[in-house]
Amino acid sequence: MIAHKSNALNIFQPQFTESLGALFFDTGISAGFPSPTEDFEEQQHLSLDKELVRNKETTFYARVSGQSMIGAGLDDNDLLVIDRSLAPANNKIAVCFLDGEFTVKRLRVDKDEIWLQPENPNYPIIRVTEDNDFVVWGIVTNVIKKV
Protein backbone atom coordinates (compact mmCIF):
# COMPACT_ATOMS: atom_id res chain seq x y z
CA MET A 1 0.00 0.00 0.00
CA ILE A 2 1.52 3.35 -1.06
CA ALA A 3 1.17 5.96 1.68
CA HIS A 4 2.70 8.78 -0.40
CA LYS A 5 4.15 9.07 -3.89
CA SER A 6 6.52 11.76 -5.15
CA ASN A 7 9.13 12.06 -7.89
CA ALA A 8 11.93 11.03 -5.53
CA LEU A 9 10.34 8.47 -3.20
CA ASN A 10 7.34 6.18 -2.92
CA ILE A 11 6.59 5.64 0.77
CA PHE A 12 4.94 2.42 1.93
CA GLN A 13 3.57 1.49 5.32
CA PRO A 14 4.61 -2.07 6.25
CA GLN A 15 1.96 -4.73 6.71
CA PHE A 16 3.05 -7.07 9.48
CA THR A 17 2.01 -10.70 9.50
CA GLU A 18 2.32 -13.49 12.00
CA SER A 19 4.06 -15.77 9.49
CA LEU A 20 7.11 -17.69 10.58
CA GLY A 21 9.22 -16.03 7.91
CA ALA A 22 11.63 -17.58 5.43
CA LEU A 23 13.94 -20.47 6.25
CA PHE A 24 17.16 -19.25 7.81
CA PHE A 25 20.44 -21.12 8.13
CA ASP A 26 22.43 -19.56 10.96
CA THR A 27 25.71 -21.14 9.97
CA GLY A 28 27.29 -18.28 8.07
CA ILE A 29 27.61 -18.61 4.32
CA SER A 30 31.19 -19.22 3.29
CA ALA A 31 32.59 -17.00 0.60
CA GLY A 32 35.51 -19.44 0.38
CA PHE A 33 35.15 -23.22 0.41
CA PRO A 34 31.64 -24.71 0.63
CA SER A 35 30.37 -25.79 4.06
CA PRO A 36 29.53 -29.46 4.66
CA THR A 37 25.82 -30.28 4.26
CA GLU A 38 25.40 -31.34 7.89
CA ASP A 39 25.67 -27.64 8.80
CA PHE A 40 22.18 -27.15 7.30
CA GLU A 41 20.33 -29.86 9.22
CA GLU A 42 18.74 -27.53 11.82
CA GLN A 43 16.15 -25.23 10.26
CA GLN A 44 15.17 -21.89 11.72
CA HIS A 45 12.87 -19.15 10.46
CA LEU A 46 13.78 -15.53 9.95
CA SER A 47 11.37 -12.61 9.79
CA LEU A 48 12.79 -9.55 8.07
CA ASP A 49 10.25 -7.43 9.97
CA LYS A 50 11.75 -8.63 13.24
CA GLU A 51 15.30 -8.06 11.98
CA LEU A 52 14.83 -4.64 10.37
CA VAL A 53 11.97 -2.95 12.23
CA ARG A 54 12.56 -1.65 15.75
CA ASN A 55 9.38 0.41 16.09
CA LYS A 56 6.39 -1.03 14.20
CA GLU A 57 4.17 2.02 14.53
CA THR A 58 6.77 4.47 13.23
CA THR A 59 8.51 2.44 10.52
CA PHE A 60 7.90 2.87 6.81
CA TYR A 61 9.50 1.66 3.60
CA ALA A 62 10.35 3.85 0.63
CA ARG A 63 11.77 3.04 -2.78
CA VAL A 64 14.63 5.27 -3.93
CA SER A 65 14.27 7.04 -7.23
CA GLY A 66 17.42 8.69 -8.55
CA GLN A 67 21.18 8.67 -8.14
CA SER A 68 21.92 11.43 -5.60
CA MET A 69 22.92 9.00 -2.81
CA ILE A 70 24.95 6.39 -4.72
CA GLY A 71 28.09 7.22 -2.71
CA ALA A 72 26.26 6.12 0.45
CA GLY A 73 25.23 2.85 -1.21
CA LEU A 74 21.65 3.94 -1.96
CA ASP A 75 20.91 3.11 -5.57
CA ASP A 76 17.89 3.67 -7.77
CA ASN A 77 15.06 1.25 -6.79
CA ASP A 78 16.61 0.26 -3.44
CA LEU A 79 14.12 -0.12 -0.62
CA LEU A 80 14.75 2.03 2.45
CA VAL A 81 13.62 1.20 5.97
CA ILE A 82 12.75 4.51 7.67
CA ASP A 83 12.05 5.05 11.37
CA ARG A 84 10.15 8.24 12.19
CA SER A 85 10.74 7.88 15.95
CA LEU A 86 14.50 8.43 15.71
CA ALA A 87 15.85 11.92 16.36
CA PRO A 88 17.58 13.65 13.46
CA ALA A 89 21.29 14.14 14.01
CA ASN A 90 24.34 15.30 12.13
CA ASN A 91 25.63 12.77 9.58
CA LYS A 92 22.47 10.61 9.62
CA ILE A 93 20.79 9.72 6.35
CA ALA A 94 17.29 11.16 6.48
CA VAL A 95 14.13 11.29 4.44
CA CYS A 96 13.12 14.93 4.38
CA PHE A 97 10.11 16.81 3.13
CA LEU A 98 11.44 19.92 1.38
CA ASP A 99 9.21 22.42 -0.39
CA GLY A 100 6.52 19.89 -1.30
CA GLU A 101 8.78 16.96 -2.24
CA PHE A 102 10.37 14.06 -0.40
CA THR A 103 14.12 13.61 -0.72
CA VAL A 104 16.73 11.40 0.91
CA LYS A 105 20.02 13.05 1.86
CA ARG A 106 22.69 13.07 4.54
CA LEU A 107 21.98 15.63 7.26
CA ARG A 108 24.70 18.16 8.00
CA VAL A 109 24.00 20.28 11.06
CA ASP A 110 26.43 23.06 11.91
CA LYS A 111 25.44 25.47 14.68
CA ASP A 112 22.14 26.95 13.48
CA GLU A 113 22.43 25.75 9.87
CA ILE A 114 21.07 22.62 8.23
CA TRP A 115 22.40 21.26 4.97
CA LEU A 116 21.16 18.32 2.92
CA GLN A 117 24.18 16.66 1.38
CA PRO A 118 23.90 14.29 -1.56
CA GLU A 119 26.45 11.49 -1.88
CA ASN A 120 27.04 12.11 -5.56
CA PRO A 121 29.20 15.04 -6.77
CA ASN A 122 26.80 15.64 -9.68
CA TYR A 123 24.15 16.93 -7.27
CA PRO A 124 24.28 20.21 -5.30
CA ILE A 125 24.32 20.50 -1.52
CA ILE A 126 21.07 22.08 -0.34
CA ARG A 127 21.11 24.72 2.38
CA VAL A 128 17.85 24.75 4.32
CA THR A 129 16.64 28.24 5.23
CA GLU A 130 13.63 29.72 7.01
CA ASP A 131 12.07 30.24 3.59
CA ASN A 132 11.90 26.48 2.97
CA ASP A 133 8.99 24.29 3.98
CA PHE A 134 11.18 21.66 5.66
CA VAL A 135 10.64 18.64 7.91
CA VAL A 136 12.92 15.72 8.72
CA TRP A 137 10.38 12.98 8.08
CA GLY A 138 12.43 10.01 9.32
CA ILE A 139 15.86 8.42 9.65
CA VAL A 140 17.03 5.63 7.32
CA THR A 141 17.95 2.56 9.36
CA ASN A 142 18.47 -0.07 6.64
CA VAL A 143 18.54 -0.51 2.89
CA ILE A 144 17.31 -3.56 1.00
CA LYS A 145 18.99 -4.19 -2.35
CA LYS A 146 18.34 -6.46 -5.28
CA VAL A 147 21.34 -8.20 -6.77
Rank of each mutant, 00 (worst) to 15 (best):
L23C: 02
N10C: 00
I29A: 13
S47M: 12
Q43E: 14
G28V: 00
D49K: 10
F25G: 01
D26P: 01
L52R: 11
N10V: 13
E42F: 08
F16E: 09
E41S: 05
V53C: 03
S30V: 00
L46C: 09
F16N: 06
D26R: 09
T37W: 05
P34E: 04
P14R: 08
L48V: 00
N10R: 08
F24M: 01
E57G: 14
A22L: 07
F25D: 01
E57Y: 12
E41G: 01
F24P: 02
T59W: 03
A22T: 14
S47Q: 13
E18V: 06
I29Y: 03
A22H: 05
E38Y: 12
T37D: 13
T27S: 12
L46R: 14
F12Q: 06
K50S: 13
A31H: 06
K50V: 04
F25V: 02
L46V: 07
K56W: 13
Q44V: 06
Q44E: 12
K56H: 15
F12D: 01
P36C: 03
T59M: 00
D49R: 05
D49N: 14
F40S: 01
V53F: 04
K50F: 04
R54H: 12
F24N: 09
T59V: 00
R54V: 06
P34N: 05
I11M: 01
P14H: 08
S30G: 06
I29M: 10
K50C: 05
T58V: 02
P14F: 09
E51S: 10
T37V: 09
L23A: 07
F24D: 12
P34G: 02
L20P: 00
T27C: 14
L52V: 05
N55W: 10
Q43H: 12
E51F: 14
D39C: 09
P34H: 07
N55M: 05
T59I: 01
D49C: 11
T27N: 14
S19C: 02
A22M: 10
E38A: 01
F16D: 05
E51A: 12
F33P: 00
